[in-house]
């Protein structure tokens, strides 16, 4: 289970709204390499991990991704806050406004709603952990694109924090993969399908 802590993992204090940036940042809320997909991927894959280290790292990184989802949602909310409809329309958010007003809804940067089809939960720990390594790299690359698009330091600062976390997660998944592969190589334990 989870408990809520009434704070963000890292501060998000965006003073100036910017609908255009909201439209880009929202992809890390509901897009293919975003935080919702990341948390659901890891929290689903953890059930079929063979070692305590791998169970732990998927559980705990999956949990941290939920905190990142909250940070990204906060960024979108603050970037959209009080923006008049005509400005939203001019900045390319007319379609978003007609479906969601100023609310936060999980879509990618082109407006396509969140889909679990962007990730797997394969039941094969090596396949899953290799996907997780790629997922962290894709999330890192997305944050770098967003940093390149952003101008406001209030926006860039949390994006930098989130980018760095993806680098740490990649490192930890690499260690978990080696631990799992060593265990599988011991032959006492091997993957046989169906379970």
């Amino acid at each position: 289970m989870w408990y809520y802590e009434k704070k963000l993992e890292y501060p998000v204090k965006i003073k100036n709204s910017c609908p255009k940036m909201a439209r880009y940042v929202i992809t890390q809320y509901g897009g293919p390499d975003g935080e919702l997909g990341a948390s659901l991927r890891y929290l689903s894959q953890r059930f079929s991990m063979p070692t305590n280290e791998a169970k732990g790292i998927l559980n705990d990184i999956g949990t941290e991704e939920l905190a990142h989802l909250e940070m990204v949602g906060t960024m979108v909310h603050q970037l959209l806050k009080d923006v008049p409809v005509d400005v939203l329309e001019k900045e390319g958010l007319g379609a978003y406004y007609s479906d969601h007003d100023h609310a936060v809804y999980p879509v990618n940067a082109s407006g396509v709603p969140f889909t679990a089809a962007a990730f797997q939960s394969k039941g094969d720990p090596v396949a899953d952990l290799v996907e997780d390594l790629a997922a962290e790299q894709k999330a890192r690359a997305t944050y770098e694109n967003l940093i390149n698009l952003a101008q406001d330091p209030d926006v860039i600062d949390p994006l930098r924090f989130l980018r760095e976390r993806e680098v740490v997660h990649f490192q930890r998944f690499g260690e978990a993969l080696r631990i799992v592969q060593n265990k599988l190589a011991q032959k006492k334990y091997f993957i046989k399908k169906p379970y």
Binding site: K7, E9, N52, E53, I57, D60, R172
Partner: peptide, 23 residues
């Protein structure tokens, strides 16, 4: 004070992940 708590929790979370693979 909130910033200090965030910094402390960050240290803890980062150590938690590290300890998951270096128990």
């Amino acid at each position: 004070l909130m910033k200090e708590i965030m910094a402390m929790d960050f240290t803890l979370y980062d150590l938690n992940l590290y300890l998951d693979t270096h128990p």
